[in-house]
């Protein structure tokens, strides 16, 4: 059984994600515990290797077309990496890349997949993990003895400093022949335009989730936002329904926000939402379900109905 730990380096627009550094820190700890090496897998943008000092080895592939993320190409490269080092564990963030590659790599490399992991540590020669299930309503503690494991780990939970280290890892280029017979081709990468609002700059946010139940009801939240002079933000379902434009979305695939106060109405607190707002200075959540995970990160909570609460707030905050 191998003892190397492989971390997939995620980058977009030439910037390595914070989660990558968090996982490099965790990977370093586990590799040291098992006496293995920490291997960073870097696809596209090989010049980013200079930032991966925490690793012993950087296995890289060059090619501008890889930089934009192409699932089949990344999968072929990653499979090559895990097969050519003595890998035991692969760490990827629970991001698009992790959700896309983690399970296919596990299937092809015959490894046990663990998703939505929030804690991971070595226990002698074994691995102990905690995963979220049911959108964070339950946690599962797991003991992993499988010889090969692919973990997707939720970002934002570990210190990233441990992974930001100077060092001089060995640079090893992956044989480009690995990409010889792909059935897909990268076309383009597009960055959305801001559309006028910048919810990341607002001192406070009034944020609505599916509990708002309909576009017409947004008016109730808008009155509170207007009284505070701040914008509305929302969880993904509200955006997907077209009730508010995309730049208003908070979360994994939206904006990361850190206002002085985040007021959440009818938001359950799925991991993808928490990823975007858990570091707000003050979180006040309104949700009729007392076991909603949003209350795990909120400082204050209430289970009164948002349709009763919003008008009361508007009345008190308005002049």
């Amino acid at each position: 059984m191998g003892n190397d730990v492989v971390v997939v380096v995620e980058h977009d627009g030439g910037v390595i994600s914070d989660t990558t550094f968090e996982l490099l820190g965790k990977g370093r700890e586990l590799a040291d515990a098992w006496g293995g090496r920490l291997v960073a897998a870097l696809f596209g943008e090989p010049e980013l290797a200079g930032e991966l000092g925490a690793a012993d080895v950087v296995r890289f592939a060059a090619g501008a077309e890889l930089g934009g993320y192409c699932p089949e190409a990344w999968e072929a490269l990653l499979l090559n990496v895990v097969e050519s080092v003595d890998a035991r564990l692969v760490l990827i963030g629970t991001s698009t890349v992790g959700m896309d590659l983690g399970s296919s790599l596990a299937a092809r490399w015959h490894a046990a997949p663990l998703s939505y992991v929030v804690a991971l540590r070595a226990d002698g020669d074994e691995l102990l993990a905690t995963s979220q299930i049911y959108a964070g309503k339950l946690l599962a503690d797991l003991r992993v003895t499988a010889p090969r494991v692919v973990v997707t780990h939720i970002g934002g939970l570990l210190p990233s400093d441990a992974g930001r280290k100077a060092g001089s890892p060995a640079l090893e280029e992956i044989d480009p022949a690995v990409l010889g017979s792909l059935k897909s081709a990268f076309k383009e990468r597009r960055v959305p335009d801001g559309g006028g609002v910048d919810i990341t700059a607002a001192p406070m946010l009034v944020s609505v989730g599916r509990g708002i139940a309909g576009q017409d009801n947004l008016e109730l939240a808008q009155e509170v936002a207007d009284a505070l002079g701040v914008p509305l933000s929302a969880s993904r379902p509200v955006i997907d329904q077209g009730w508010l434009p995309k730049p208003h979305q908070v979360g994994k695939s939206g904006k990361k926000v850190k206002p002085k106060a985040y007021l959440a109405f009818g938001i359950s607190g799925a991991p993808e939402h928490l990823e975007g707002m858990r570091n707000s200075e003050l979180i006040i959540a309104c949700n009729t379900d007392p076991s909603a995970p949003i209350f795990d990160v909120a400082h204050y909570g209430t289970t009164v109905d948002l349709f009763d609460l919003l008008p009361e707030l508007a009345e008190r905050l308005g002049d």
């Binding site: 977009d12 934009g68 991001s95 698009t96 890349v97 897909s184 597009r190 959305p192 995309k246 695939s253």
Partner: peptide, 9 residues
């Protein structure tokens, strides 16, 4: 991808 960036393949 994160932050609303999209890629097409």
């Amino acid at each position: 991808l994160a932050g609303g960036t999209v890629v097409t393949t």
